[in-house]
């Protein structure tokens, strides 16, 4: 459905997107995961014909985004980071305006607006000005606006940015539903690991304008864990530094990190690691309250691949770890 080849964009000498290539299959949910300034938005804007690529090509449904931009526009729906809604127009007027720009016949549009508003539980707000809506409601409006023309491809740029957890969940559910029911191909960008994990069939990890890794969530995680690697979270009531030292000295353990006064996280590989580690703690007379076998998260994947953490992760608690801090780069749009 979408083919991207060596797509590059320079802004006044700054390379925002650097020769990226990927394909997205019909009906797939494809995620671009990365920190702010990684070039996700620029990539989406190039696919949406809003930004002209400096180099490389991209096609949507076999139409080139530069040469056949009008054909591309007919196929896509864009949910931009900014809300595309006029505050002084009512919900219905907004949808009507944009719907008519797509040349949707009046009767069809009327029905579709009601249907879409119902879908996001905003039917009762049809006649209210969008300026009076909460940000969750506005974002829902923003999403259904992009669905007016029943796009084959839906481009979502940070669809849950700035939303509370509950609204985020609603939006995610909605995106999933659209993909499932309408077989819409979806490309979304996000800096949230959880979101990418929940929604995407495949994930491209973007950093500094490049795609650092591209695979399914499960495969990406295998990059970190391998088949015999385990990550254990242990709660030890009387945790001491001696205990940590003795765990660390074990052959099968690759790293130990302390989360707080009672919790540690252990990366280990090999057979029988559970017994080995537990024996070591017992030897130090540790009282184990709980042991959890953790799945590696995309967080770990990102760290593993890029060598640094995702910035801007206010929505997530990450384990305290000595990590390299990068200077935040100026956001170039």
């Amino acid at each position: 459905m979408i083919e991207v080849r060596n797509l590059t964009k320079n802004f006044n000498g700054f390379r925002a997107v650097d020769h990226i290539s990927f394909d997205v299959k019909r009906g797939e949910v494809f995620g671009l995961l990365g920190p702010n300034g990684a070039g996700k938005t620029t990539t989406i804007r190039m696919l949406a014909t809003l930004t002209r690529p400096t180099e490389g090509t991209a096609t949507v449904g076999n139409y080139d985004v530069v040469k056949d931009d009008d054909e591309v526009r007919k196929l896509i729906g864009l949910v931009s980071e900014k809300i595309i809604m006029y505050d002084r127009l009512t919900a219905k007027e907004n949808l009507w305006f944009f719907g008519r720009l797509y040349g949707i016949p009046k009767e069809v549009l009327n029905e579709r607006i009601d249907e879409l508003l119902g879908l996001v539980q905003l039917g009762d707000w049809k006649g209210s000005q969008v300026g009076t809506f909460s940000s969750g409601m506005r974002q829902r409006m923003n999403v259904i606006r992009a669905l007016l023309n029943m796009p084959k491809v839906l481009l979502l740029d940070e669809p849950t940015l700035g939303l509370d957890p509950q609204s985020s969940v609603e939006v995610r559910e909605f995106v999933k539903k659209i993909n499932r029911e309408k077989k819409t191909t979806i490309i979304l960008t996000t800096h949230m690991m959880v979101e990418a994990d929940i929604l995407c069939d495949r994930i491209g990890i973007m950093d500094h304008g490049k795609i650092a890794a591209l695979d399914t969530s499960t495969n990406l995680k295998k990059l970190v864990s391998g088949d015999d690697t385990a990550i254990l979270e242990l709660e030890i009531a009387n945790l001491t530094s001696n205990m940590i030292a003795s765990i660390q000295s074990l052959k099968c353990v690759s790293s130990v990190s302390q989360d707080n006064s009672t919790h540690i996280k252990v990366h280990a590989s090999g057979n029988g690691v559970f017994d080995t580690i537990i024996d070591a703690i017992r030897a130090e007379k540790g009282e184990i309250n709980s042991v959890k076998n953790l799945e590696p998260t995309l967080e770990d994947v990102f760290l593993h691949i890029t060598g640094h953490e995702v910035r801007d992760k206010a929505d997530q608690k990450i384990p305290m770890r000595a990590h390299r801090r990068f200077m935040p780069r100026r956001r170039v749009r």
Binding site: R73, E81, I83
Partner: peptide, 13 residues
């Protein structure tokens, strides 16, 4: 600035 122009730009007009 508010981003609504994109809405028109992305429509096939």
């Amino acid at each position: 600035e508010v981003g609504t122009l994109d809405g028109m730009m992305v429509a096939p007009i």
